[in-house]
Design a protein around this nucleic acid. Structure first.
Lengths: 332, 332
DNA sequence: ATGAAAGCGCTAACAT
DNA sequence: ATGTTAGCGCTTTCAT
């Protein structure tokens, strides 16, 4: 690998001239510049990022931490952050914290030294830990908000309230919320939204779970819902809802004829599963873009005060919700 | 941010002692070591990765390049490479080359300086360019093989041959292959496999396309297939197949009653779309793990000669394939 | 316009 | 067992 010295000696100038010819071309004589640039091309010289980082203190790298790359929600997020990072000349490193608070903690510490800033997807950290982290490194949190921390949150709750009303208007009186992970901030918000909507619409909700936010867990969730005797379920996310659909089908419970199912996030698959999922839609990729933008902003010399940006979410009605069954089916 | 000097002066030793206390504890007096480690904890000292990289010449970072992060095939790959990289203490940076040969070229060059090695997912590079790249930086290619380049390839072709026989056994005589991108090496292999299978099974295949490997393109592909009057299609990948399913449904063509559909890769969604997709299954995550392993191996002092590892793939029959229609439906 | 030299934070000889 | 020193490759004063 060619170094700046190779280039310098190749065209008989000093290393500072080479450096300047590259980073501030206007400061060097046109003729010399040509010569240097030619040598650079000739030797295929690439300035060492390590050396640059050492000098500048910046790595031109951003890190994205997610609890589980397996979850399509995060695919969409990755897409958005990656695109925006790339556009700004940053690389993005991807870290899976495996739904673990400790791992997240640890990775924040280590990632912080490798990256110039972090995007925390659905952080499982507590308020104090999150604020603390935000103090030690530029970061923006996605779907995890607390005062003093820059974040972008999706207004899923208002979508869920709409969903409850939708269910009510179909005649449902008994619905279950299939809870996500306890450590998920979104889960708390969503459950509160469901409760609020239920109060407004005058129907009864109960919370089942918590369940891991996976398709596999949807089977258990479906069984719990059938056992509870509700006519509709609202799942913490689409993954659980997908699992529910599958399990209900296996048990011979028809959707939406015997049971209505509402997902959340409208991630990949929600529109082509069977039946297609009524769910809460937001542009997650857009959220990723925004989060990266807000992070990049903090990296500029004058960092803005922490802000929280809210992205709208709406109810998308598809085939998995329908009128309440005329007569309740036997509970298997 | 604390430096090694801060730690050193904090406990009245030289920086080398600090360095040693951290990287080779056995070389320093137990008592001093304690003191140093205490100071490290106290000051929350984190050795600078940039400085370390500069010294060692290694960044402890791997890069994964994919043509399109949007594609679920690559989600699975990301999972695998990420897991294995993390296990080996490496970070992984993710790069989207956007289906562009030029972008891939360029990113290989730039990524090469930031990362210690690359995993190229479904590289769109030509043979020469790929070999050239492999000469300049440690890399392993996934589903893109050429002599002299370490790679892991999925034995999708044998799965596709099985699929053709499956179709033949259902009575199909006319099938179409819905071609993927021209620059995709896999596409060529898959098409050849389909032709071979067709010859063996004595049925006729034609190639339609090429189509971009996206759900959206599946609509065009479906129309082309209907127009061609075939009774079964085999798509380059599940994404196209999913799009076909959707379009066929919209046009009132029943699957599998009027048309059988075979996908490829068994990516997220293939098992819960409607009807579930008959497809070619391989553990893509496993492929990612393997690719990273093989890359890591090249990074060790004595790099092994280029090898190509083949991962098996099998036909998974689901609901999207069935007997050939008794009488052909009118072609819309 | 160009060169010399200092130094970013660290590790690895080489002294002591 | 510990300290001193010389770089790793680069940018950036400061001279010239």
């Amino acid at each position: 690998m060619a170094t700046i010295h190779d280039v310098a000696s190749a065209c008989g100038v000093s290393i500072s001239t080479v450096s300047r010819a590259i980073s501030r071309p206007d400061l060097v004589n046109a003729a010399t510049r040509e010569r240097v640039l030619a040598a650079v091309a000739e030797l295929d010289y690439q300035p060492s990022t390590a050396a640059r980082s050492l000098m500048s203190g910046r790595s031109m790298t951003l890190a994205l931490l997610v609890p589980d790359i397996t979850n399509p929600f995060f695919f969409d997020l990755v897409r958005g952050t990656q695109a925006q990072a790339a556009a700004a000349g940053y690389s993005q490193i991807l870290i899976d914290t495996n739904e673990s608070v400790e791992l997240e903690h640890q990775h924040i510490a280590t990632a912080a030294k490798g990256a110039d800033g972090l995007v925390l997807g659905a952080s499982r950290l507590g308020d104090d830990a999150l604020r603390e982290a935000a103090r030690s490194v530029p970061l923006t949190a996605v779907n995890r908000s607390t005062p003093g921390v820059t974040s972008v949150v999706i207004d899923t709750p208002s979508g869920m309230i709409q969903a409850v009303h939708h269910l009510a208007s179909l005649g449902h009186r008994d619905v279950a919320y299939l809870s996500g992970p306890r450590s998920s901030w979104s889960n708390g918000r969503r459950w509160r939204a469901v409760q609020l909507g239920a109060r407004q619409a005058g129907l009864s909700v109960r919370r089942l779970g918590p369940f891991p936010p996976t398709r596999a867990a949807g089977a258990a969730a479906a069984d719990a819902a059938v056992h509870a005797g509700v006519t509709a379920v609202m799942a913490f996310n689409d993954l659980i809802a997908l699992g529910v659909l599958q399990r209900l089908f296996a048990r011979g419970v028809a959707v939406p004829d015997d049971m209505s199912v509402v997902g959340c996030d409208d991630t990949f698959g929600a529109d082509f599963c069977h039946p297609p999922l009524t769910t809460i839609t937001a542009s997650i990729e857009q959220v990723g873009r925004l989060a990266t933008d807000m992070l990049l902003e903090q990296l500029r010399s004058v960092a803005p005060p922490p802000r929280v940006h809210t992205v709208p979410a709406v109810l998308t009605i598809r085939g998995s919700t329908g009128p309440v069954p005329a007569r309740r089916r036997p509970r298997h």
